[in-house]
């Protein structure tokens, strides 16, 4: 199994940390992982993205131009990465702020209204975990118990009290995700 994922959105949406938690969870179940962020200008207010690869085998390039899954959280990222999904692959997007919805017919497309839901129930800090929950419902590449271990590893210990909130967000995200176009 090799899953090649791009997660893309605005800086501050938790794109990089979502990738980090996913990567740590892969480590916890003894898989190979790589986490390759965009860095530099993107970190200073523009778009942010991270390539995460989780695999049973040694990972070759940590930098890719085609992905099994794209998780897209703003319009700029939709413009940039819709066409980078492999045919038959998966595109997940949050429709909040999306002006041009995905148009491809050769991939599976799901939407998750996580931004709206998160602000409605006052959990906007764990918006990214709702999105992760949605992804894991479709592709359970890491087990939830390993997500918990990944959270423990990637969050500083002063934030460990937030882990139950993160786990709740994952569960909410699993219920929230909706098919848009399924092959």
């Amino acid at each position: 199994m090799t899953e090649e994922i791009i997660i893309a959105g605005f800086g501050g949406q938790g794109v990089l940390s979502m990738g980090k938690i996913l990567a740590y969870s892969g480590v916890m179940q003894n898989q190979e992982v790589s986490w390759m962020p965009s860095y530099g200008p993107e970190m200073r207010g523009g778009t942010a993205n991270v390539t995460v690869i989780v695999s049973d085998e040694r990972i070759s390039s940590p930098i890719l131009n085609k992905f099994d899954t794209a998780i897209i959280l703003n319009q700029q990222s939709m413009d940039k990465f819709e066409n980078a999904v492999k045919p038959g692959g998966l595109l997940i997007y949050d429709p909040n702020g999306i002006t041009r919805h995905p148009e491809r017919k050769d991939i599976n497309i799901y939407s998750i209204a996580a931004a709206d839901e998160a602000s409605k129930i006052g959990l906007s800090k764990v918006f990214n975990m709702m999105v992760l929950g949605g992804f894991l419902k479709l592709k359970p590449i890491v087990q939830l118990e390993n997500i918990r271990k990944g959270l423990e590893k990637s969050l500083p210990s002063r934030h460990h009290k937030l882990i139950p909130e993160n786990e709740k967000a994952i569960t909410i995200g699993q219920d929230l995700i909706q098919p848009v176009h399924v092959l």
Binding site: M36, Y39, I59
Partner: peptide
Amino acid sequence: DGAIGQMMEK
């Protein structure tokens, strides 16, 4: 290089 410096792996 910057990519290997910035990326995370096991």
